[in-house]
Structures are given as C-alpha cells and as structure tokens.
C-alpha cells in the first residue's frame, strides 16, 4: 500500500480509502468487531448489559474507540446477538463483565420451514437500538470517523437459531436443506444491513463463523462463497467479512467474494495471509486477543502491530472482539505504534 503523496486525511477518509486499497496518509487503526472494555464502560458510564440495549449508551461506549483509543473507526455493535434476539432466541444478557449470549441449548428452529423473519424484525428494540446508535454517531462524528455497522451472516445465525451441533450435523446430513436454510436466513442479514446503511453506516462488518476450528475450507466454498458474493453485490457499502480462528485455507475463496476486506485472526500469519490475498481484498487485523492484548504488556503489542505494518496489512487492529478486561494502555499502544512507524518512515524519505 502506498502512503506517499497523500495529504492529511480524516479518520473516515483513511478507513474508506484503505478498504478500497487506495493510497492513505497512514495505515488506519480499526476494530470492526468490538473495542468495549470494562475500563471504557466506567470511563463514560455506559456499562454492559445496558450498553447493548440503550442507543445512547451504545453510542457513547462505541465512541471511545475514537475519543480515548485513537482508532479511526467506531463500531457500536459489541456482540453478535442483536438480530438473534430479534428473531426470538432466548437470551442471556449477562453482567457488566461478560458479553451477552444466546442460549443455544434452547434452539428456536429445527427445520427450514421453521425459519421466519418477522415482518417487524427491524422494529424490535434490539434492532432499533443499533440503528439509533448509528444515527447518533453519524450526527456526532459522521464527517470525521468511519462508522461501521454489523450484520450477522446466515452461518452464525444458524448456530444461534438451530444450535451449533444441530446445525453442523444438518450441514453434513443434508446439504440441500442446509443451503435452503442459509438462503432463508440471509434475508435477516440483508434487511439489517440495508437498514444500517440507511441509518448512516459507512461500512458493514459481516461475521459468519465458518472457521477452520469448526469446518473445512471446502465447506466455505460449498456453502458460503456464493452467498458472500451476493452480499457484496446487494449491500452498497464496503463489507468486512469477519471469521476468527484458522482461515488461511479458505482465504483464496474469500478473496474472490468481492468483499472489501477480511478481518483475520492471529492464528494466520500476516505476511502469509497477504500473499494469499494477493491484493484482491484488504486485510484487517490481527493482534492476538487472549495472549497478547489481554495478558501481555505494550511491548508485545507493539511487536505484533509492527509485524502487520511490515506485512502491508491495510487496516491494523485486534483480531476479534477484545476481551472486556483488556487494559486501555495496551489498546493505546496500537495507534501509537502505527503513528510512530509512519512518522519514522516519513522522515526517512
């Protein structure tokens, strides 16, 4: 990626240019999943679980990634469960120190014909919360920062609504039925995505957990590649596909989807991943969460940031939703290292 001959950019312009793999003044710092932490909740008085359900608190907590951490993007959706809640899953909203989750042991669907996207899906309070939070953020930061929305892909919705094991067994037993289910669930992905774009989202993260820790790369090609192409065509903003875990064996397929970017996990080396992607899609990542950001100090964070910068990763940030107990100090180190690295290179010219 070139960084020469580009005048100073706003965070928003920087992120959007990087997502198009165009020149930037410096590498943007971005986490398209979540940067919510307990420390940040205290700082702006926007604690979980309320910050997942109240648009003002959601917007306030999300904005800290820009105002406190110096990231170039804001992501108001901290979890992966807003639409599952709206679809009728049984929820566990948890406390301040844990993410809300779906009780997948109590599945709501068993068959393709059970799948129903309610007519008032977008009017559910947990959908409205996200849409309103995006509107608030757009008003407050719309010109400066990239506001990224999040709409879950059908594979993850399948885990939530059918239960992971039931869904994975179905995928093995009955590929035709599985495809039909995915096709029906994709309506939820599209509807929520389009509504967020209308509310002002500059880009959308699309998590769809077909990870190498669970399924083969061939599975990605069989079940998801075409759907992801369709999302890229029908959702008219840059899309960031998120799949954590090992994904190197499916990156070649991912690169062919037409998505703007892929948010990748530290289980995949930055340089090797860049080689596979071969300038067909931007990469976002991939600082390790549990071992580095959560458990180590700024020096180790710095090393991982540098590894990404040197590999040419287009947007640098954590690999997935950061652990809620991550220190602000470690998070600040990310944007600081990126700025210093570009500063040093600027002087060298």
């Amino acid at each position: 990626m070139t960084t020469e001959a580009v005048g100073p950019m706003t965070s928003r312009a920087r992120v959007l240019a990087a997502l198009r793999r165009e020149p930037v003044d410096r590498t943007p710092v971005c986490n398209p999943t979540s940067v919510a932490t307990v420390e940040l909740m205290d700082l702006v008085d926007a604690p979980f679980p309320l910050a997942n359900r109240d648009p003002e608190l959601m917007a306030r907590l999300a904005a800290t990634s820009y105002t406190e951490l110096g990231f170039d993007s804001i992501m108001p959706v901290f979890s992966i469960i807003q639409e599952s809640s709206a679809l009728g899953c049984n929820m566990q909203w948890e406390q301040k120190d844990n993410w809300p989750t779906v009780r997948m042991s109590e599945p709501i669907w068993r068959d393709a014909d059970d799948i129903r996207i309610p007519n008032d899906f977008l009017l559910h309070p947990d959908m409205v919360c996200v849409l309103d939070a995006i509107r608030i953020l757009k008003k407050r930061f719309g010109d400066e920062v990239a506001i990224i929305g999040k709409t879950m892909g059908p594979w993850t919705l399948g885990y939530h609504c059918f239960g992971v094991e039931a869904f994975l067994l179905m995928s093995l037993d009955d590929p035709g039925k599985t495809k039909l289910c995915l096709d029906r669930m994709k309506e939820a992905t599209l509807q929520f995505g389009l509504a967020q774009i209308e509310a002002g989202a500059d880009a959308l993260t699309l998590p769809d957990h077909a990870t190498g820790d669970l399924v083969s790369g061939e599975y990605y090609a069989r079940y998801l590649k075409d759907l992801h192409v369709e999302f890229a065509e029908r959702l008219p903003v840059p899309l960031i596909l998120h799949i954590c875990g090992r994904t190197i064996d499916r990156m070649d397929y991912i690169a062919q989807t037409g998505m703007a970017a892929f948010h990748f996990d530290s289980k995949n080396a930055p340089d090797e991943s860049m080689t596979v992607m071969h300038d067909r899609i931007a990469l976002v990542g991939n600082i390790n969460n549990p071992e580095t950001l959560f458990a180590k100090g700024p020096e180790v964070v710095r090393q991982e940031v540098l590894k990404n910068l040197e590999a040419g990763v287009q947007l640098v940030g954590p690999e997935c939703a950061i652990p809620l107990q991550t220190s602000i100090e470690n998070l600040l180190e990310i944007s600081q290292t990126v700025r210093e690295w570009h500063g040093a290179r600027g002087r060298a010219h």
Binding site: S171, L172, D173, D213, V215, S216, Y219
Partner: peptide, 9 residues
C-alpha cells in the same frame, strides 16, 4: 483431516 461436523457424526 476432519472437522467438527464429521466428529459430531
């Protein structure tokens, strides 16, 4: 060589 769906089966 195999993944979670196969092991579940």
């Amino acid at each position: 060589f195999i993944f979670v769906p196969e092991v579940l089966a």
